[in-house]
Every structure is written in structure tokens, then in C-alpha cells.
Design a protein around this nucleic acid. Structure first.
Lengths: 352, 352
DNA sequence: CCTGGCACTCGCTTCTTGAGAGTGCCAGCA
DNA sequence: TGCTGGCACTCTCAAGAAGCGAGTGCCAGG
């Protein structure tokens, strides 16, 4: 019936009108009628003409009406075309730029930086910010320390990769003195200082299995303690994604139904789906945009997600982004996400 | 007109009926009519009689109708009387008890314990959990370490009060070697190890003002670095209250309006009001309950807050609690909050 | 190819109506 | 005096009806 060529025959006027329509819809959030659009477009066309164009755009799947006699609103495909071909990205506001620069400074550890980036994204865009923690592929053990606690427990402090400090409590089979623990720590630091954590673990595990006879008592104790510290999974952080500003989403009309919100917030809490989505972006370059159902997760049905990977030393280590209603100001959001990614990468760089 | 004696002349039957009414309302969340109440009370009274009693209770301010021809529901004053005089607290469910015991164990640091307690409160009650971080009145410096970073920056690691590890990055006026920093750390550890942080700060500040001539160069550097580390406010943690399970509140009919939710969630984000409220509970003993407007914060208007202080070594160090709709199962929530407070206190105790 | 005109559709608001739940009050009864 | 059944009344809620306003599709004419 209706012709549907693979490359849509969108003449310039139709494209322009689609663009004006989407910009208007993003501003107001209400279906745009032909009269309004005629006024907005300011190109001396009558509403009737606009209607004809709109009918074409609807046939091609770029716009739709919620019901017979309402105006038109963009479809997912419409947004997609808009974002890919029609959008002119705004330069980043100077104030925002300044804010990003000053707040993402170097004197913070990984966790704090990530949290701050998330807060900035949400604060500046007034939507929900999300940052995936950098995967720590190369985690070099810089230093390890033991401190005795009461009751056969030992506090272990590890410094990993320059700035990062981790600590945990382990149980040992007898009480050690501070001096003994210092010897053990010194031994481990000497043996493993600067080595990659994964490598350290492998050596330790091997050592524990074939008890070396050439080890003295203290070294054995040290290896045993280290065995507990480097238990397989414990080294990855559980908290691998950080959100901020979820409540901002309550301000948007289209997400305002309690049920929608609930699904959304539960998705935030579960983190799983979001994490998967972000994971997909690791291998892409630059800003990526998922519009509505494109994300593949029903919880995000009425939302768009704008992401960008950030890299340290030229290697992508994580992804950050913004989650908001499909009807978001893409031209403003894109540079914000882009810049935040760059600055976070820079701030995480240990060399600089 | 209506008699309003200060001690309400509530005979036993009226009290019993009030109790049944509130229990029913807590279960269903709908105004209770005279017929329903007559059936529930199972004391061979006709609805008409019940209605007379209800009229009295309404005069006294314990119940109200949302409109002329609906059933009755409790007022704040009604809940208050119920909680103070009519409630029989359920013993804590064995499964829940077990869960609390195993999850609040000793091998976690302060922050993790608090977070877990908050999650447990929210998970078991299916409402929002909140825990105020223990104020660290006596913070003894157990150990301090310096590690050089690139670019005149130094990573400082402090162990405070046995289990707690803090780290930050400071700027120094020249690059130090690892060896130099070790000397500085050793000096500080010897001078201040085991001392209270506040005291340490005072000494440092004094030292910095009147430059001792008997200090060698390294000691001066150490004091200077310590000066940066112990900058006044930075030692208190900014994150002084931890929430969990806010989304649970979206499940309750009475809080389901987006506006109400929004205010509530904003209050959680701001933290200020909640913090004030919790602060008031520090000096009280045992479980405290704020019903609806009693809290004095409009954001919590349709909510009740059940709190209990928790103590280490006999001294109250913080407060925890649960936030939910006024219509919550107080008999179940109270022992949960109570027990969690006890167990958190125990888990935080450094001696045990 | 554009335009004005016209009939038509549909959602939103308001009003009405009826059903259902529950109350207050009264008179009668133990 | 206290309890009860009965009855009129009130109020909410849901469903239906009517009017309106916005906007469309289509057609004939320039």
C-alpha cells in the first residue's frame, strides 16, 4: 500500500519540519498540532500544507498521534533520525564547564571521583546520572599492612594502584603481635610490591598448596594471611555502578505515574539491567544514545540513555551517562556527558 | 459543649474497640465501618452499639471519618494512645533474628556495618531504613602512613579506633622520597600513636604556630603534613546518615501520590530534616516513635518514624530507625528496630 | 503544489444518576 | 441505664450523557 523505500525520501522541508516539531515537543511535552507547527516553523506555510507533510512523516514512521485528533509527537524512529541527522549540538555552557573542571580535580580517590561525576551529571542535567566504576584491569599492589585487633583478628590495609586504599578484617589461627605482623607485611611487600593483584593471587595459591620447606615460620604465616586477603572474588568491588539524582525523574510528566516510577527505581536498585546496558557501551567510541525501547529493557521504556566511555591512558576503563525521559534536550545533554567523560578520565589518570 | 476531661474516660470496652479498629486499619488501610468492627471484635455487640462508642471516640479525638458516610480511621492521637497503652509487641521472628545476627557480624568496619544495618532494617520491615553514623567522640589515632604520589602529592592513610581506615591526598611543597615519608610517619606515630584526634590536632596547630628550634628538618615536614591532614572539619565524615529501601515506600497506597513521594524523597536526599529528627533521639532511651505530624517535619506528614539509639560500651553513639506510613505494623517494627540497635551496638564494640 | 473550507473524530470536563456503604438518631425493650 | 433494630440521610464512587475544543483528512479551487 504505502511506499516504504529503505532510504526515506525526506526532502529538506520535511526534515526541517520534523526538526521543529521535535524541538517543540521536547520543550513542551505535548503533541504538536499543525497550526502551532506552522507558526513555529515560520516559513509561510498554511496549517493544511503542514498536515500533508505530517501525513507523509506519519507514513514513514517518524511521528505519530496519541489519538485521531491530537497533534503529532515523535516516535522512537523519529528521535533516532533527529539525533543522527538533524541535531546541532550546543556548545557546553561556560558555567557548567567551570563547575565540571573544578569539581573533578585530582585529589580524590577513585570512588569519590566516580561519585562526584555522577552527582555532577545529575545536577547539571537535572536528570539521573550514572557512572560505572572503572574496571581495574591492572591492579598493582603498592603496599600491604597488617594491624592486630583483639580476638585473633587482623586489620589488613592495601594500597592499590597509587591512590586506592582497601581494608578488610581477617581471622587468623592465633594472636600475632604488632612486631610479628610487621615482619609478615615487610615480607609480602618485598615479594609482591608493585606486582599485579591477579599474579599475586596465583603465586599465593600455588605457595599454599605445595608447602615450601625453605619457608620459615613467619613467611608461612604471611602467605597464609595473604591467602585470606586475596580470596578470589573479594577483590572486585561489589558496588560497580553509582547513581545520583534519581528523584529528578519524578519531575517529568511522562514518568509521573507511580507504576512507571516504581519500575524505574527498582531497575536502579537492581542495577543489573543498567549495568548490562552500560557494558555494551564500553566498546563503542564517543557518545552513544539509546532511545526508549532501543535499550532493550522494559524498565527504561519511556527513557533515553546517553552514555560515553571514559578512558585512562588511552584505554577505556568505564562508562558514564545520563538517564532521562525520551523527551530530553539532547543538544544540551550530549556535550555534558561527553565533557564529563573526558574530565573524569583525566582526573583518574595517575600520571598527570 | 462536649466534655473534654484531661484524662479520657475510656472504659475498657472502648479501649478494646479502638485497638481492634486500629489493628484492622493497619491491615487493610481502609476506614473501618461499624458492621466490620462488630464482626472483628467478636463480642456480641450490634453495629448500632459500636456506632455509639465510635461517636464517643470521635469526640475524644481518637478516630475520625474521611467523610460523613465512611468508616472510622485512627487520628494521630489515636495511634499515640494505641502505641502507648494498647500495643502488645510481638516477639521477633526467629528467621529475622537469625538474619540480623549473622549479617551484623564483627568483621566489618564502621561504614559497612552501618550500611548493612540500614539494609537489614529496610529489608525486614519492607519500609525505609535509616542509620545515623556513630559520632566518633573518642577517635584515637592508631597509626598514620604516608605514600608518595607523583607531582608533590602524598597519599595519607590513617587507622583510627581499631578498625577504621581513612585516606586522603595532600599537597606538599616539594617531592619527598618513600624513605623520607617513612621517617615522618614514624615520628608522628611515636609522638601521637594512641592519642585522641582532637588532642593531636591541638598539639599540631600549636607546633605549627611557634616554630620549635629543637625540631629537625624532617620533623618540621612531618608536622606540616600532619597540619594538612588534621584540618579542622575534614575529620568528621560528611556522610552522616545512611538510607536504604526508600523505594519500598512506593508500595503503600497512602504515599502513592507522586507529590507526596517527591517531598519524601527530597527529604531523604536533603537529609537535614531527618538528621535533626534523629538527633533528638540520641538522649532518649529505648525505642521512640514519632507518629505523623509529631515529627514536626511536613515531609514526614503521613509517615511514622520508629527509632532506637545504639550504644557502644554503654555510651550512646548513634540512632537508627525505620520510616514508613503512619499505618505500619508497630508491633512487628518495634522489636526489629530494638534488636537491630542492640546488635549494631554490639558489632561496633571494639572490645568484644 | 499550496490553500481554505468543511465534516468528522476523539479526548476532556462537567453533570447526572444510581448503587452502596455507613452514619446519626429515635423509639422500644431488658 | 444500656443495647438494639429501624429508618432517613449523607457522601463517595462508577458509569453514562452531553458539550467543547483541538486537530485531523480530504476535497475542490487557485
Amino acid at each position: 500500500m504505502s511506499k516504504k523505500p529503505s532510504s526515506p525520501p525526506l526532502n529538506e522541508r520535511a526534515q526541517y519540519l520534523l526538526r521543529v516539531l521535535i524541538e517543540r515537543y521536547i520543550r513542551d511535552g505535548e503533541p504538536v498540532g499543525s497550526r502551532t507547527l506552522a507558526r513555529d516553523a515560520a516559513m509561510e506555510l498554511s496549517p493544511a500544507t503542514i498536515r500533508n507533510v505530517m501525513a507523509d512523516l506519519e507514513d514513514l514512521g517518524f511521528v505519530k498521534s496519541p489519538h485521531t485528533s491530537a497533534g503529532r509527537m515523535p516516535t522512537v524512529q523519529g528521535y533516532r533520525f533527529f539525533v543522527d541527522s538533524l541535531l546541532t549540538v550546543q556548545p557546553l555552557d561556560g558555567v557548567d564547564m567551570q563547575r565540571l573542571r573544578t569539581e573533578l580535580n585530582l585529589d580524590l580517590n577513585r570512588k569519590d571521583l566516580v561519585e562526584r561525576a555522577s552527582n555532577l551529571l545529575s545536577g547539571i542535567t537535572r536528570m539521573a546520572g550514572v557512572v560505572m566504576l572503572p574496571r581495574r584491569k591492572q591492579a598493582a599492589l603498592r603496599r600491604i599492612d597488617f594491624l592486630p585487633l583483639s580476638d585473633k583478628r587482623v586489620l589488613v590495609i592495601m594500597v592499590i594502584n597509587e591512590r586506592e586504599v582497601q581494608n578488610r578484617i581477617i581471622h587468623v589461627n592465633r594472636a600475632y603481635t604488632t612486631a610479628e605482623l610487621e615482619v609478615a607485611a615487610a615480607f609480602l611487600n618485598e615479594q609482591f610490591g608493585g606486582k599485579d593483584l591477579a599474579a599475586v593471587r596465583d603465586v599465593i595459591v600455588a605457595d599454599m598448596q605445595q608447602t615450601h620447606e625453605d619457608m620459615n615460620r613467619m613467611m608461612k604465616a604471611a602467605v597464609e594471611m595473604a591467602g585470606q586477603v586475596f580470596r578470589a572474588d573479594d577483590l572486585q568491588e561489589r558496588e560497580d555502578v553509582v547513581f545520583a539524582g534519581q528523584t529528578n525523574l519524578m519531575g517529568f510528566r511522562e514518568l509521573c505515574e507511580v507504576d512507571t516510577l516504581r519500575h524505574l527505581f527498582e531497575a536502579f536498585n537492581q542495577k543489573r539491567e543498567i549495568l548490562h546496558l552500560l557494558d555494551q557501551c564500553v566498546n563503542a567510541e564517543g557518545v552513544q544514545i539509546f532511545i526508549g525501547e532501543e535499550s532493550g529493557y522494559t524498565a527504561l521504556d519511556e527513557c533515553s540513555v546517553v552514555t560515553a566511555p571514559y578512558s585512562v591512558d588511552g584505554k577505556v576503563v568505564g562508562v558514564l551517562g545520563v538517564i532521562g525521559p525520551t523527551r530530553m534536550a539532547y543538544d544540551r545533554v550530549i556535550p555534558i556527558v561527553d565533557t564529563t567523560a573526558r574530565l573524569l578520565g583525566a582526573a583518574l589518570n595517575p600520571r598527570e
